[in-house]
């Protein structure tokens, strides 16, 4: 365990930024926390979490994949992939650290997605333990410990200090360069206990996953409640775009005039044309699309991933859905939670 004073944080940021681009949550002019490239003058946000999740760092919203040139009947394929530069993401919360694990299990399994793998190999995650979890948080539901968020380095914040501990080799390497003072873990344990007490009193503290999991397709798929739950869903896709674990993408071509760029971009299972194809559409109504999103997180994903749920309990969809529908309501309605 290492310690630094909260006042010296900008010096530490400067040191980290010497060798790699550093990103951290900072408030924009509307007061929303967004991941921002650090440079002198950029202030670390006090907000609990960012509006958009950090999945962009590894799985960007839009990404060029390859380029084509055509001449007559001939085609030239150009691999335009570049090796990513080293970067550090500071201030990642426990839920979002889990989301990287959830995405890894999709993108890194054979055949490995080289675009994602490349960024993942070059990105160091410095997590920060939560001290003021909010009423939309339910990470605990998925056995995520907000007081021990993980990543390459974990940071705990107290009134006046930061405590640092490395979890991986590359975390240890970076931490050793910061020349921090070694210390015991009493202060951290004290801080953890305080946060723990808040976590236990959160309105969603008792939400549990009973009734969900990889073996629950039959029990849940035909439940009549899907209809009422999805009734007002606008199919706007906001929930999928703010979600750190939503992974669906589209592949499209863009003709720039002298070449064609094939790019991928986030897509949403909530959109009506998501599964539309030549002989029809297997999810014709919003009920089916809505069900897909939640069945994926709560049943299909765990079925394929050792029981790990595809939701990290970050609460973004809870606070952003225009009609206040969300995974918590789905779990309460279908899982017998109350």
């Amino acid at each position: 365990m290492f310690k630094s004073s909260l006042n010296s944080i900008n010096e530490i940021f400067a040191k980290i930024a010497e060798n790699a681009t550093l990103y951290l949550p900072s408030d924009n002019k509307d007061g929303n926390a967004v991941y921002t490239k650090w440079e002198n003058g950029v202030v670390w946000s006090n907000s609990l979490n960012t509006v958009k999740s950090p999945k962009d760092f590894f799985f960007p919203q839009v990404e060029d994949m390859m380029a084509f040139k055509t001449e007559g009947k001939n085609i030239e394929i150009n691999d335009i992939r570049e090796e990513s530069e080293d970067f550090v993401v500071f201030g990642v919360r426990a839920c979002d650290v889990r989301s990287f694990d959830i995405l890894d299990r999709v993108f890194l399994v054979d055949p490995c997605d080289s675009y994602y793998a490349n960024r993942r190999e070059h990105g160091i995650i410095i997590s920060v333990a939560c001290t003021k979890p909010s009423e939309t948080c339910f990470c605990k539901t998925f056995d995520i410990d907000a007081t021990n968020p993980g990543g390459d380095i974990t940071v705990w914040k107290t009134e006046d200090s930061l405590y640092w501990s490395a979890n991986t080799d590359r975390g240890r390497e970076l931490l050793s360069k910061l020349n921090l003072e070694e210390c015991g873990d009493e202060a951290v344990n004290e801080q953890k206990a305080k946060t723990e007490a808040i976590l236990n009193k959160l309105p969603l503290a008792n939400l549990n996953t009973d009734g969900f999991g990889g073996d629950k397709t039959d029990a849940l798929f035909d439940r009549p409640e899907w209809k009422t739950l999805s009734e007002s869903c606008l199919g706007c896709g906001t929930c999928t775009f703010v979600c750190p674990t939503c992974q669906c993408y589209d592949i499209k071509d863009f003709n720039t005039g002298n070449q064609v760029i094939r790019y991928r971009c986030w897509d949403s299972c909530m959109y009506s044309d998501f599964t539309k194809m030549a002989h029809g559409n297997n999810r014709l109504s919003q009920v089916e699309r809505f069900r897909q999103r939640f069945m994926h997180k709560l049943v299909y994903y765990p079925a394929n991933n050792d029981g790990i749920f595809g939701c990290a309990g970050c609460g973004r969809c809870v606070s952003k859905c225009p009609i206040s529908m969300n995974i918590v309501k789905v779990m309460k309605t279908l899982g017998g939670n109350d």
């Binding site: 999709v106 993108f107 997605d113 990889g214 397709t217 798929f221 992974q247 669906c248 993408y249 589209d250 592949i251 897509d267 299972c269 998501f274 599964t275 297997n282 897909q292 069945m295 994926h296 049943v299 299909y300 994903y301 079925a303 394929n304």
Partner: peptide
């Protein structure tokens, strides 16, 4: 199996 489009259940 990554773009999330063609699943039937899991």
């Amino acid at each position: 199996g990554k773009c999330g489009r063609c699943n039937v259940g899991s």
